[in-house]
Amino acid sequence: MISSNSKVILEVRNLSASVAGIEILKGINLTVRSGEVHAIMGPNGSGKSTFSKVLAGHPGYTVTGGEVLFEGQNLLELPPEERARNGVFLAFQYPIEIPGVSNSAFLRLTYNTQQAHRGGEELDPLEFNDFIQEKCKIVEMDPSFLDRSVNEGFSGGEKKRNEILQMAVLDPRLAILDETDSGLDIDALRIVASGVNKLMTPDNAVIMVTHYQRLLNYITPDFVHVMRRGRIIKTGGKELALELETRGYDWLDDEHQKAASV
């Protein structure tokens, strides 16, 4: 949903980052406005996942240059928990299992932490139960999953649904979905995508990092960016994804190099 007078949520300027001394991101530029869905595509090793982790504040990556403004504020100086409280959400490609911690207790703890930060009302277990039952419907999750340990013994699809459930609970301003479609069968993909669509509002934005075009059949992007070797080398509309599906990525590489050498 593009509207030129929407608020800028995220402004990435010439961002570069490295892990263990190896530079992975080499100058990323990206502007995300409220109400927009951005897809970031690219072959393996292009830096897409690194980009999403750097935005969320993973301690394993070192930012070596550039800046990131989130709602006008310097995001990079904040620890990951403060980025989250301010409204950045990362749906993990491989969600972590936390044996011994019940899903409902975990969701309530994160929700109340968020509420305390925003000055909102915290919920006791009974109130939260009502609240979370409604959220479960968004991702068609059986409420019995609330009593199980976080992600423990969940199938790939259940883990991804649980990520979107967390997104529903935390109500982020910017959701980054890191390969949320990987490992999903067609039904799970439909459920997860429909959950994301239900959570979209004119005030928030989504960045979808994905390898394949198929997720974009369910969540329509306003922009498609192609990453290659740590840079965004092409940006287009949703039709670009279809072109990538038929032509692959190599032609872009040639085109990009040609452009660079001119």
Partner: peptide, 18 residues
């Protein structure tokens, strides 16, 4: 594990204890 919990808004101490 710590990063997962931090990315949900829990500070380092809360994440560790959890």
């Amino acid at each position: 594990e710590m990063f997962y919990l931090n990315s949900r808004g829990l500070d380092a101490l809360t994440a560790r204890n959890l």
